[in-house]
Design a protein around this nucleic acid. Structure first.
Length: 477
DNA sequence: TAAATGTTGCC
DNA sequence: GCAACATTT
């Protein structure tokens, strides 16, 4: 028999903002103690990796939903702000907590926060697998080393079979005596003056209920044709689950199993592979804590990155004069998300054609993406740069004109996000600088006036990148 | 998860 | 002249 005044179990929620399939929550409930769920807003410990603007918008709404869910169970969510370890240690002391349950973190700063907490407290701190399909040390090669290449990593994951059965949401929770909680509104996670979140509100509905609904809708609709449709940014062919997965509004286990339950087929296999890319990135970050700021391949430290504030700003604003790049960057700015095919194109353009550091691109994505994820963001930027896992730099200079022609053949995506070009015929829309004057005039486009000329010559930019990469390889051998 | 360039084989 | 295929970056 639990009474509210008995020593509670603290449930520290960070990136598992859900009731379903939450092993940390299940363990706290299973402790037979009053449960005290807490979220800590920590802008200090993560350093540069504190949540960016778009993430904060999402976080506000996700926490609002989660708080309502906990309130309905009779165990209010406590909100505290400050350095994670200090806040949790103080809360544990204040409430006489007997144990702490949390998700196993993979971000270096969060791992350090747990270590600091352990140093401060004598009560047990139990970490549970909540972020990924497998524990961070579970998948290793036969010789015990971490995987550095995706394909064998994915094979090893699949050999383990289906994920464990999801844990149901608790139907009731023994509540603790509620300590003070901040008001969510007081955290000012939402933008004001100017309110730039209009596009986010239109595009997204954060929260566990919406996450589950989106997964179900995707599994019942686009999933079978995902293998081909996912490459077309003008088509709603992807799941758009990434922010829900990042904040843990749904578990990767639930996502994986929903796909399996939808039947067999190429689309399912390819989509589950994307879940495994997420898993691979988490694994890389766990084994390489420098992944967010230092090249995994050390020879890339000598890469002759350029300094070009104007070029970087043009890329950020979607004013490079390359339509598919500008469309992607504007989709990101407006909606907090970018289609994955286009992420690869804009990243390749920044790192190869502009020869700007991948860290600059990663930082911009960090601030503007609602799905900004330290592991995935860092791993993917390094992948594009060629400095990361699965190295093959020559394979990754995307020609944005060819990519646009191939994957946005009618130009629907470009028209949506670059309205200046809306009336350019499909044959010319991905390279307006090559269009006959008459065609441009007919479409109301005056290059250099209402749409920029390309800020870099694509052939010359490509060659410059190849030369730089060749010099790196030469220096290494 | 690419693109450019070179070569072959056919009209 | 050009499409299919092979090689190089």
């Amino acid at each position: 028999m639990t009474t509210p005044s008995a020593p509670p179990a603290l449930l520290w929620l960070r990136r598992e903002l859900r009731l379903h399939d939450n092993r940390a929550l299940a363990a706290a409930v299973g402790s037979a103690r009053p449960v005290l769920p807490v979220y800590v807003l920590d802008d200090a410990t993560p350093g540069p990796w504190a949540d960016g603007g778009a993430s904060r918008w999402w976080l506000h709404h996700s926490l609002s939903e989660l708080a309502a869910s906990f309130a309905a169970l009779g165990a209010p969510l406590v909100l505290r702000r400050g350095r994670t370890a200090g806040v949790l240690a103080a809360l544990a002391a204040e409430t006489g907590a007997a144990e702490i349950h949390a998700g196993q973190p993979i971000e270096p700063w969060a791992i350090a926060a747990v270590a600091e907490l352990r140093a401060r407290l004598t009560i047990p701190i139990n970490l549970h697998r909540t972020l990924t399909l497998h524990g961070p040390d579970a998948i290793r090669t036969q010789t015990g080393t971490p995987y550095g290449v995706f394909t064998p990593f994915a094979r090893a994951c699949r050999l383990r079979g289906e994920p464990e059965r999801p844990v149901p949401a608790p139907s009731r929770m023994p509540a603790a005596i509620a300590p003070h909680s901040d008001r969510l509104e007081a955290w000012r996670l939402l933008p004001s003056r100017p309110d730039w979140a209009g596009g986010l509100r239109t595009a997204w509905q954060p929260g566990e209920a919406a996450a589950r609904k989106r997964l179900a809708t995707f599994a019942a609709g686009p999933l079978p044709s995902y293998a081909t449709a996912r490459d077309l940014p003008g088509v709603e062919g992807t799941s758009r689950l990434s922010p829900h997965l990042h904040f843990g509004e749904i578990s990767p286990d639930a996502a994986w199993r929903a796909a399996t339950a939808a039947g067999a087929g190429r689309g399912i296999e390819v989509w589950q592979n994307e879940i495994l890319w997420r898993e691979f990135s988490a694994n890389l970050l766990w084994h390489h804590p420098n992944l967010p700021f230092a090249p995994l391949r050390p020879e890339f430290a000598a890469m002759p990155w350029r300094t070009d504030p104007d070029g970087l700003r043009a890329w950020q604003r979607g004013e490079t004069g390359i339509p598919i790049v500008d469309a992607g960057m504007r989709q990101l700015w407006q909606t907090g998300w970018m289609h994955n095919r286009v992420r690869m194109i804009v990243a390749s353009f920044l790192v190869k054609h502009l020869l700007l550091p991948w860290q600059d691109g990663a930082a911009w994505f960090w601030d503007t993406l609602v799905d900004a994820d330290l592991a995935s963001n860092s791993a993917q930027w390094q992948w594009v740069a060629g400095s990361g896992a699965d190295a093959a730099p020559y394979f990754r200079i995307f020609n944005p004109v060819l990519q646009g022609t191939k994957f946005d053949p009618d130009g629907a995506y470009v028209r949506r996000y670059v309205p200046e070009l809306a009336n350019v015929p499909a044959a010319e829309i991905h390279a307006p600088w090559q269009a006959p004057d008459l065609v441009l005039r007919g479409a109301g486009v005056a290059l250099g006036r209402n749409y920029p000329k390309p800020i870099v010559d694509l052939a010359a930019g490509r060659q410059r990148a190849l030369d730089a990469l060749a010099a790196l390889n030469k220096a290494r051998s």
